[in-house]
């Protein structure tokens, strides 16, 4: 068995003076190259978990190791540097709406370039060419100089993927990447993520709403309920009973194609 790439130990996150517990003592390991899917109801702590991993949210307790580095111990400056290795895409895409697609993609290189240059909007030629190649990869080369808010939802999410690609990441965090998209577009976006996982060997942690998508793309699934880890195993292991346990008694599985 290979050395685990990402280790999460006893992760706990408490908001607002002890009144809201978002994560309760969550522990798991991820090996390099895995496509791990996190499922659970809204508010079960999926987003918090992902954001703790690149420390957009500071964990209250627990430790996280990535590639042997204890990132929960890094100083803010070191963490900033480390974040270049972790790509992230978001439910609502989080693009600069009024800027061009090109600018949006180039922001993926911010961590690699000197501050004063990026403040003036100057990026090296190599970065620009990389940006265009990545845009071609997600099939949006023609849209390079179009404003981001002129694109459709699926296209915007692909820009988000291109932005993450710019970081040349080892790990990709995808926070409900397809929740805001319709079923057909969902699959196209998921396939780009899968491509990253299989061709570039990027380890992927994706939170998903639909179990069917999780089964189709994930190599492993973990499930959160009220901030607790309630399942960790292969996609096939989730049967009807498990499903009810995660989503509650009244839930009914919906197929998304």
């Amino acid at each position: 068995m290979a050395e685990p790439y990402l280790v999460v130990e006893h992760l706990t996150k408490v908001y607002e003076r002890g009144h809201v517990v978002a994560l309760k003592d969550v522990s798991f390991e991820v090996r390099k190259g895995e496509f791990l899917v996190i499922i659970g109801l809204s508010g079960s702590g999926k987003s918090t978990l992902l954001r703790c991993i690149n420390r957009l949210i500071e964990p209250t307790k627990g430790r996280i190791f990535i590639d042997g580095v204890e990132i929960t111990k890094l100083s803010p400056r070191q963490m900033r540097k480390f974040r270049r290795r972790i790509g992230m895409i978001f439910q609502h895409f989080n693009l600069i709406k009024r800027a061009t697609v090109m600018t949006n993609v180039l922001t993926g290189r911010l961590g690699y370039n000197p501050t004063w240059k990026t403040l003036l909007g100057i990026f090296p030629r190599s970065d620009r060419e990389l940006a265009l190649r990545n845009l071609e990869r997600v099939g949006l080369l023609e849209k390079a100089y179009v404003r981001a808010d002129e694109l459709s939802g699926g296209q915007q999410q692909r820009v988000g993927i291109a932005r993450a690609l710019m970081q040349e990441p080892e790990l990709l965090l995808a926070d409900e990447p397809v929740s805001a998209l319709d079923p057909a577009t969902s699959h196209s976006v998921m396939q780009y993520i899968e491509q990253m996982n299989q061709e570039d060997g990027v380890t992927v942690l994706a939170s998903l709403h639909f179990l069917s998508l999780a089964r189709r793309y994930g190599t492993r699934i973990i499930a959160l309920k009220d901030g607790e880890l309630v399942f960790d195993g292969a996609p096939e292991e989730i049967d009807d009973r498990k499903f009810k346990e995660i989503y509650g008694e009244e839930a009914e599985e919906v197929e998304i194609r």
Binding site: M102, R125, R128, E129, L132, L141, E142, A144, Y145
Partner: peptide, 9 residues
Amino acid sequence: ELLTGKAAG
């Protein structure tokens, strides 16, 4: 032309 960035205004 697109790939070399000529399209930028």
